[in-house]
Design a binder for these strands. Sequence first.
RNA 1: GUGGGUGUAGCUCAGUUGGUUAGAGCAUCUGACUGUGGCUCAGAGGGUCGGGGGUUCGAAUCCCCUCACUCACCCCA
Length: 426
Amino acid sequence: MSNKSIKAIKGTFDILPSETPLWTHIEEVSRKTFEQYGFEEMRTPVFEATELFVRSIGEVTDIVQKEMYTFTDPGERSLTLRPEGTAPVVRAYLEHRIHVNQPFVKYYYIGPMFRRERPQAGRTRQFHQVGVEAIGSDSPGVDVETIALAYRLFVQLGIDDVSIRLNSVGCKPCKENYSGLLRKFLKPRISELCNDCKQRIDRNVFRVLDCKETACRKVVAEAPSILDSLCKPCSEHFDEVCKLLENIDVPVNIDPRLVRGLDYYTRTVFELNHSALGAKDAVGAGGRYDNLIEEMGGPAKPAIGFAIGLERTIMILKKKGADKVSSDKDKVYLISLGQYAFELNFKLLEKLRRCGINASMDPEPRSTKAQMRAADRIGAAIAIIRGDREIEEGVVMLRDMRKGNEDTIRKDNVIDKLLEKLQGEN
RNA sequence: GUGGGUGUAGCUCAGUUGGUUAGAGCAUCUGACUGUGGCUCAGAGGGUCGGGGGUUCGAAUCCCCUCACUCACCCCA
């Protein structure tokens, strides 16, 4: 390929018509499932003030430090393409003062996110997420509803073998206590840890728990559990979450080593994993963020949410061979033998479309064979064939492309006959 | 940011120790079938062999540089 041609930029990709039905299917299933659970759609801009993400995600996180698409607009404002969906929703929630008359709200969003990472399987620079945020309650029931929804969504998509990891990182004091304990535990064993983890002890201790190096895992296996460091309210909250989850048969594995990358998480955190994805196998994740809204200058409103990655969901569906979605409405193809027939068909084409029938025809009257092939290729249910013979008799021929039989009918009855046939099949 | 791998037709890929007009399958178009798709058969179109430089009588093949893509690590969904 010539390197002069303009190509989609690294980490982005086109979704061609052969793939769009799968994407719209996932979006439709998501919308339907979210609305069953009482969530409403929120749409926010794809770019925001940079400050929004710096404050919410956390200044020292990798996302903010090196992965954001940040630019200065001609008005000298620093803007950033959203790297995740929670902060914008929270911003909109506060900006419209929704808490004033709606103490508890449930939102969902669907759309592209942007992070400048090195692309690889299941990770692109423009990627797509669907997610939810439930704002205004710290009831364990909301945690459970949210986790159940995440699980349900995958089941609805035909993925019933996700595994769910669940943990609680506690409230702020719990987190601080535990990070102290963990440091105290790790410092004497620092020589046993990998180089990355040696630095993590000071920068972000929790991440040591997540390390995949076997040496680190060995050390971590004996580390104190965060669940033992929770304060009484956090501990009771977590127990209640676990109990309720059991009641409704959502399978979770409690994993005291589960931590999240974003700073704002508190208490319940969870991750949905699938074996088809390999080492980094998260397809969805979320958790509580009880302090974020207050930290963003709003009222003290506890909240919880999650997001799932669509590219990864599609990877799973493809590996399962479940990525073929049923085709839409039946189509009709008009075949013209000769110029005059072509003109008559062109008139009929528009009439059919006005009746709500999906109809198309060749842009020019080619050979019968070529037009038949075209009809076959688009998967037409019915071909309307018209040539000099039919014109002379005032009829058209309807060919059922699946059965292979043909009917000759009067041209004035075409639409009624078509509607009848198409309806009979659907 | 780090480390591997791969670049030949729209797609998937062959291409021998360097050898002259660069191949196959799929896809597309045309025909066999002068008005009928899927199957079969025949034919056609489609390539600056990623780019640049070097070695050589001769380079897709060997050397150097470069670009792109890809997988993994880091981190995240």
